[in-house]
Simulated assay, not measured.
Amino acid sequence: MKAILTPQNNPNVDHSYRAEGDVLHITVNGVEDSFDFTGMPDGAASGFDSDLPINPLIQASKADGVLTVTLLGWYGYAPEQGQEESDEDFQERLAEYELSKTEREVTL
């Protein structure tokens, strides 16, 4: 499953995404919900009902049998370098943070 992550700044959201085939599992602040796209025909869908406190699922589309979901990609505060953290490790964390602020495609 491909996912397009759309950046959204909110440091108070703890979230994770994982896929099992065409089933998307989303956890937001400890609450999990699943979205089953098995058998979805080619086309697009939106407006998903969920028990999540904030539903990050914006859209699902299928083209030639390939499922792509558009999700909010939350990010929080910029990292600060710890006293015992090497410059290299900090630069790696900072690069990950900067990447989280851009729209990007990932595989789940």
Rank of each mutant, 00 (worst) to 15 (best):
M1P: 14
M1Y: 07
K2V: 04
K2I: 09
A3M: 12
T6Q: 13
P7T: 04
N10A: 14
P11F: 04
V13C: 02
V13L: 03
D14Q: 09
H15V: 11
H15M: 11
Y17S: 10
E20V: 03
E20G: 01
E20C: 00
G21M: 11
G21S: 10
D22V: 06
G30K: 03
D33A: 11
D33W: 03
S34Y: 06
T38Y: 09
G39E: 11
G43P: 11
A45I: 15
S46E: 15
S46C: 08
D49L: 01
D49M: 06
S50E: 04
S50A: 04
N55D: 13
N55T: 06
Q59E: 15
A60R: 04
S61D: 15
K62V: 15
K62L: 14
D64L: 09
V66E: 15
V66A: 13
V66F: 03
L72G: 02
G73R: 02
G73D: 06
Y75T: 02
Y77C: 02
A78S: 09
E85P: 07
S86N: 08
D87Y: 05
D87A: 12
D89H: 11
D89A: 14
F90S: 09
R93W: 02
L94Q: 14
A95W: 02
E96L: 08
E96Q: 14
E96Y: 01
Y97W: 13
Y97R: 00
Y97S: 02
E98M: 07
L99V: 00
L99M: 02
L99H: 01
T102K: 14
R104G: 07
V106I: 14
L108T: 05
